[in-house]
Simulated scan of single mutants.
Amino acid sequence: MSAWPDLLGPAEAVAPRLLGAVISHGPVAVRITEVEAYAGSRDPGSHAARGPTPRAAVMFGPAGHLYCYVSYGMHTCANVVVGHDGEAAGVLLRAGEVVAGHDVARERRPGVAESQLARGPGLLCRALGISVDLRGTDLAEGPVRLELPATPVADVVSGPRVGLRLAAQRPWRFWIADDPTVSDYRRHPKASDGRP
């Protein structure tokens, strides 16, 4: 039996359930306000679309683990692995509100407004101090921890994912309506609207 029954299911169904969840690492905790779903072999935008490469192997399960990667050679991004063992799926943590460890988060993100401390996937990881070395971490046992919300967030909006070239129009980005910590939408200049 999974330690994370709420994370078992298709990525696009599980993703909205992570809104309002709190992820913590050391003294910093962030309430998640924006996520994106990635569905492995069903999704050409996923790192796991071509199978379990060394980088993406953790996406194949079990649910409730951390999948980290480096974007543009400089930003660490974090995903929560979801779905059933053997079926790759993840939910990218795109943005959130710092709810604990404000002083530490400000040291890591000096000179930015409170709402900007964890606004964007790379900045969220920077605020939390998450590096790619934490790939595979069990989110139930730390050092990075995830606490799901007791009740689902009510005002959820969905739309296309940010910056993808393939399967760009899938409405698998989810965010809390009118939350100031949600990042801006940016369409990839070579985005394909086709659905392979």
Rank of each mutant, 00 (worst) to 15 (best):
R186V: 14
E87M: 14
F174A: 08
S115T: 14
H102R: 08
E97V: 07
G96E: 13
D103G: 05
P110M: 11
P180G: 01
Y67V: 06
L148K: 08
G90D: 08
P171W: 04
F174P: 02
D6S: 15
Y72G: 06
V14P: 03
A63V: 04
C125I: 10
A177K: 15
P171V: 10
V153M: 12
N79H: 15
L139F: 01
G163A: 14
R17S: 15
H102Y: 14
R161D: 15
V30T: 03
A63Y: 03
S41Y: 07
V91W: 06
L92W: 03
P5R: 15
L123H: 15
S46I: 06
P62I: 10
G194H: 10
G73Y: 04
V28M: 12
R187N: 00
A105Q: 09
A150Y: 01
D6G: 10
S131F: 05
M59E: 04
D85H: 12
M1I: 12
S131Q: 09
G96P: 10
D133G: 13
E107D: 12
L19Y: 12
V14Y: 11
C125K: 12
A168W: 06
S24D: 01
P171Q: 13
G122P: 05
L92R: 09
E141G: 09
S2A: 12
A140G: 10
